[in-house]
Design a protein around this nucleic acid. Sequence first.
DNA 1: TATGAATGAGAGTTCATTCAT
DNA 2: TATGAATGAACTCTCATTCAT
Lengths: 196, 196, 196, 196
Amino acid sequence: MPPKTEKPVHPRKIEILHAAITCFLDRGYHQTGVRDIAKQAGISLGNLYNHFKGKEAVLAFIAEIDGRELSGFVADLSEPADPCAALEQFIVEYTAYASRPENALLGVEILTEALRNPNIAAIFGKDRGQLIGAIADCLKAGATSGVFRSYDDERAVACTILDALEGHGLRSLSKNLRMDRSTASLHKYLMNGLKP
Amino acid sequence: MPPKTEKPVHPRKIEILHAAITCFLDRGYHQTGVRDIAKQAGISLGNLYNHFKGKEAVLAFIAEIDGRELSGFVADLSEPADPCAALEQFIVEYTAYASRPENALLGVEILTEALRNPNIAAIFGKDRGQLIGAIADCLKAGATSGVFRSYDDERAVACTILDALEGHGLRSLSKNLRMDRSTASLHKYLMNGLKP
Amino acid sequence: MPPKTEKPVHPRKIEILHAAITCFLDRGYHQTGVRDIAKQAGISLGNLYNHFKGKEAVLAFIAEIDGRELSGFVADLSEPADPCAALEQFIVEYTAYASRPENALLGVEILTEALRNPNIAAIFGKDRGQLIGAIADCLKAGATSGVFRSYDDERAVACTILDALEGHGLRSLSKNLRMDRSTASLHKYLMNGLKP
Amino acid sequence: MPPKTEKPVHPRKIEILHAAITCFLDRGYHQTGVRDIAKQAGISLGNLYNHFKGKEAVLAFIAEIDGRELSGFVADLSEPADPCAALEQFIVEYTAYASRPENALLGVEILTEALRNPNIAAIFGKDRGQLIGAIADCLKAGATSGVFRSYDDERAVACTILDALEGHGLRSLSKNLRMDRSTASLHKYLMNGLKP
DNA sequence: TATGAATGAGAGTTCATTCAT
DNA sequence: TATGAATGAACTCTCATTCAT
């Protein structure tokens, strides 16, 4: 296999990406106009179309970038020496990840769009599927080694863990009150359900 | 206190409500035009505005009606003789509830709108807050009587349960494959985390 | 000629009239909706149409009532013993009349509508034409008796006096500052131009 | 002071301006739709919004352009060698100006809008205020040199002159009959009131 | 690559009026 | 007389996208 030579991304494209993220966070995907993005990026409306095929392509690019961030988690969960420790660490780190506003809000934005847009759904589902798979594998490994309880459908459990952490991240946005106690309880609950 | 005399709702308003739900399910809130709703309802565009102040008012009404459905769950969870049984039953029933397309999809639609629309957030948050409170109370009661493990923040656990069930409901839409096994695993996982 | 038996006006019609005047003053004729008038009058939208053929009919009625107020001035100016005193008195009284907000603002409202609406123009022009005629006659009488300078077209002078007083009334609305001095100067100027 | 580098106005903007004037003359400001203007200008509806922020901005631009025309009169009236001749000339020229349909009709259109729209009022009032000031100054100069009678409030007299000429201009629209005699009488009357 | 004028469909909302009750 | 639901055209304005420069 030839070395994967990633075609360099035009820096302007990254600027547009950031501008779009800012807008989508502020107003949401459908409430954001292409003009808003161009203005935020400080470029002309027409020029945006030199870098992206259209509005949807911008979201697709965001979803793609977003998905790549998940691969770090996947790597950490793969073939863990200690499944329990690996999962616990994942939960901690994913909590932090999912609590960052850009991830929390963009996540729902992408998810809701994916519900009706197969194009986005494909991008969104690919990396997320891998993450779910990695968690499920970790759960299976733990079940085999006896540190985890065994479940018929580990993917369902994995999904639940993600749902819980992402829901928690979303709630952390609107609450200024301290989330420490609730985060601790959430983590304990999620782990307790796994213990044999 | 005088008897609460609920002003009767014009039947046309209900028809519009159903039409709007249909449209929102099909295309989503922001992709749906007021004209679409009127056409679906079989009425003129202008007449819609005789019954609703605007598009947002339609969503608000849906959120309100939606919220009322939750009060049944709240009642069932209040002061349960057997907290464990009550919660188990709730999980089963709420799974069914959250798996119905209109609830699953409208739920995220309302949630995402609530993220940036305080008006919707207030309506959405009121009944949902009561449900979370009821679950949390049930968890506390169970912890006191020893059937449940004790958590610092029962509301966080309650939220997690709802997140899990609603995420599951959402996923059940896109999968034609049988969800039985994953549902069973999910339920087991959620209950196991509560066991002392 | 049989005695003029004026058909009694339904009191509700008067209420609507007042409501409409209030609205037209507030927002102007074209910015006022029929709904606004009905709401202001405290009646239903449909009922308004039992009393008036439409929105324009309301304005026409106002213009008619408005016009009748002018007949008082006409009477005072007719066959005056002392044309100069009569005109001076008219100027004083018409200044007061034209400075009342409802007359000042409704006046321009009716005038601008009359520019393009022949129906309104007819109503508006009838009584106003009589007033102009009366003033012109007074000027002629004064010229004959030597107290006034003679003009080829007395109606043009009469129009100018009205324009001046109405313009003054309109300006008095937006200025909170005292108008006394400017009113006095205006009156002096108008009279000076008539002196031989 | 750096040379005033006026940003060049897009020719399309001028076209829209003319189209709007045509429409406003035909139907009046509030009866004219934005679509009407676009159609008259021969451009698409959306493109109009590339040149103007909205309908009101079009009227504001007209008012601004309109106001600039007055500055010519202001210059002619400033520091006149012969105040009487200057004023007489002004009256003649302003009569012609105010009798052109676009000035007469647009004037009342702008005036009535200015009554309730502070934005328009500011634009409309600025240049008109200067003109009134210039006339008043001319009157003062004439009073000092003895060619004019002295008035306490010269601005009031100045306003009256404008009201008279503009009222005359407006009336000249609806009358096909010759206005010569009435114009002459009007001019004589206005000047007579100034003579000492 | 970069610009912004141009397009026209579509957005949400209000309009004056009618009509069955 | 009185009501307010019903109509559909009209309203101002924004949309994503294209195109000539």
